[in-house]
Design a protein around this nucleic acid. Sequence first.
DNA 1: ATCTCATATTGGGTTATTCCGATATAACGT
DNA 2: ACGTTATATCGGAATAACCCAATATGAGAT
Lengths: 151, 151
Amino acid sequence: MCGEVDRPIEKDDANTSVVLDMSSDNSLEEACCALESLYDDIDVDETVTALTERRRDGSTIDGQTTVFGALANEHRVRALEALREGELCACELQIVLEAPQSTVATHLRTLRDAGLVKTRKKGKWTYYRVADTAVFDLLDLGAAVDVPESE
Amino acid sequence: MCGEVDRPIEKDDANTSVVLDMSSDNSLEEACCALESLYDDIDVDETVTALTERRRDGSTIDGQTTVFGALANEHRVRALEALREGELCACELQIVLEAPQSTVATHLRTLRDAGLVKTRKKGKWTYYRVADTAVFDLLDLGAAVDVPESE
DNA sequence: ATCTCATATTGGGTTATTCCGATATAACGT
DNA sequence: ACGTTATATCGGAATAACCCAATATGAGAT
C-alpha cells in the first residue's frame, strides 16, 4: 500500500556534506508509510518536499559541528572557563588542566582550529585568549541546559 | 632548579569528575618551571593556587560536555534545525535526516538525554520538540563562530 | 487475542577521539 | 655555535562514537 514516492533529490548541491547513500535502502519508503497514515488526506510528495526544505545549508552545519565538537570535552571546556578572566599562556593552562604538556597542547590546537581561541606569541611563550566573547555565551547557554539525570 | 611545589590538592571535593592521576607524572613540575621564568619575582605556590581557582565546578562541566557532545553531530544539528518551525514526529524527522529509522531513533535519544528535546506521545506517534528556545540560541552562536579553513 | 505499524533498543563492525611518551621546532641565553 | 626551555607534533594503543540490520516494545485496529 505504501508505493513509490517522487524523491525530491538534489534540488541544490549544497547538501554535499551528507555522506549517506540513499539509493540502496528503504528508509524513505518506510517513513512515508508512516506519513500517509499520520494525515489521512494529504499529498505525500508535497509533504516530503516541505520536510526537505527544513534542511539547512551543509556548510553551516559543518561549522556548527566543528565548534560543538571542540566544546564537547571536559579539558577544553575547563580551559575556556579559565580564560574568562583573561589570557593565559600554555604553561598556565597546563596547571589549570592538570594534564601532561602534550595533552594540553593538543586540546589547545583543537580549540584554535574551531576558531574558539586565538594565540599571541611573545618570545618562548604562547598566550591563549578567547576569540570572541560569544564563546562565553555559548558556555553559559550550555551550562544552563537542564540535563535529565539517570538515563 | 625547579623544585618542589606545595600542591593545592583537593581543597574541595567538587572536582571529583577529573579522572586524571597526577601522582605518577611530572606535569605540574614542568609547568611550574615555565611559570618561574615567566614572572621573575613571584611566589609560585601562590600563582598555582590562583590558577587552581580558575577551575569550575565539575558537575557544571559535565552538563556542558553532555550538551555540546549532543550538538557535535551533523544529523543531530540537522534535526534541531528542522524543529525550529515546530514539532515533528519521528517519521518526519526520518525524512529530514535521510537516514535509517534506527539511526534516527538513536540520535533523537541522544538529544533527549542531553535535555535538548522533549517528547509527546500521541497514539503510535512520538512528537519531538525543542526543550527550550535557548537551544536555538546555542545553534545560532555555534553557527556564528568563524571557523578558520584549511588546517 | 492477534495483526499491523511507529518507534525504541540491541549487537557488533567501523571509524573517530583521546591520551600521553617520545621527538621535533623555535626562541632565548651564554 | 651550543645548551636550555616552551610549545608543537607524531605514533599508536585505549576508548568512545557512529551506523544500521535485526529484534523488541507498545499502541491501535480487526
